[in-house]
Amino acid sequence: MTDLNEFYRHWLHTRRPDVPAFKSAADVPIDVQFAHVVRDKASHRGVGLRSGLRELAAGAPNQDYLEEIGSLENLEYLDLGWPMTATDLAPIGKLTKLRTLRIDSPRAIADFSAIAALPSLERLFISNAKHLRTLDFLRPLKSQLIALGVEGSMYTAQTIATLAPLEGFALEALFLTNTKLEDQDLSPIATMPNIRILGTGINAPRAQFYALRDAKPDLVCQWFDEKAWGSFKDPKPPRSMQ
């Protein structure tokens, strides 16, 4: 399970533990391919000129930082780290080679549609997104995403209306850690032909997990094991059923 998690999550800091960290874009060598650049006021200025960058962890990105990132046409991996104050994701729509996108706590983002226009995107992870309630915007990525995470923070659950927009997706891995499903329905996962791993908290009744286990016996999920439930109880039913 751990190996599968690492493979699909594809984090920069685990794949490249020696990735150089910079406090100022001015210190980033012009030909560097991998970097971690944390913004302090305007210290990000000039990162858009580092055209050789293929993988970037961007700390504290505001809108100006995101505009510069939009100039990095060779970027394949982008981690937009906390605290993210950018208000518009439109600049990432220019990143046609981007394969992995991670967005942590986008508190001011209400429109995620720019993500669906990324032609090379394979892995997408969004966590603690204050204004994200529906997954409808993901529909254009049905045949290209192999890993998806829509997750909450350590203390705040990520509320999602339903997984229905993901029906038939080509996903191999789905991560729903600390995610609250309003309809508590896991059946859309059973329609995913390639699904291998489901990492999730208890966001549906036990019967839902067992039904999914029966439909997808090769799927890896800790809640398929009856012993894992111990004293855990089903979540409260949706309001429509109360």
Rank of each mutant, 00 (worst) to 15 (best):
Q208N: 06
G152F: 01
R206W: 10
F169S: 03
D185I: 06
T156W: 02
A170L: 00
R206T: 03
T162K: 09
P140K: 06
N203W: 04
L145Y: 06
N178L: 08
L166R: 08
L181P: 15
L138F: 02
A173C: 08
I160Y: 04
K180A: 13
K142R: 15
L186E: 14
T177H: 07
L141W: 00
L145Q: 07
S153R: 11
D136F: 00
Y155Q: 15
L198V: 09
N203P: 00
S153T: 00
T156A: 05
Q184N: 10
E182M: 13
G152A: 03
L163H: 07
A190M: 03
P165W: 02
I195K: 08
R139T: 11
Q158A: 01
R196F: 07
T162M: 08
E182V: 12
D185T: 04
P193K: 09
L186Y: 08
S187K: 13
F137W: 15
R196C: 08
S143P: 02
M154K: 13
A170C: 03
T156P: 06
Q144G: 00
L135C: 02
L176N: 01
I160G: 01
R206P: 07
D183A: 03
T156Y: 00
P165N: 12
T179K: 06
I160E: 05
F137D: 15
S153Q: 10
T200L: 09
N203M: 09
R139G: 02
G152C: 00
K180G: 08
R206S: 06
L141F: 01
R196G: 04
N178M: 12
Y155M: 15
I146S: 00
A147H: 13
Q158L: 07
A173K: 04
G149L: 05
I197P: 03
V150A: 04
L174G: 08
G149K: 04
E167R: 14
L174P: 12
T179Q: 10
M192G: 05
R196N: 10
I202N: 06
T156S: 03
T177A: 04
S153H: 05
T200Y: 02
D185V: 06
T177M: 07
I197D: 01
K142M: 10
L198Y: 02
I146P: 04
Y155I: 14
S143K: 12
S187L: 08
L145C: 06
R196K: 15
S187F: 09
Q144S: 07
E167C: 08
I160P: 07
A161I: 10
I197V: 02
F175D: 14
A157R: 15
I195Q: 14
R196Q: 15
L148D: 11
F137K: 13
R196A: 05
L171E: 15
E182I: 11
R139A: 05
G199E: 14
A164P: 02
E172C: 00
A207D: 13
F175R: 14
T177L: 09
L135W: 10
G201L: 10
L166C: 05
I146Q: 11
L145E: 03
A207K: 12
G168M: 04
L145T: 06
N178S: 12
P140D: 13
N203Q: 12
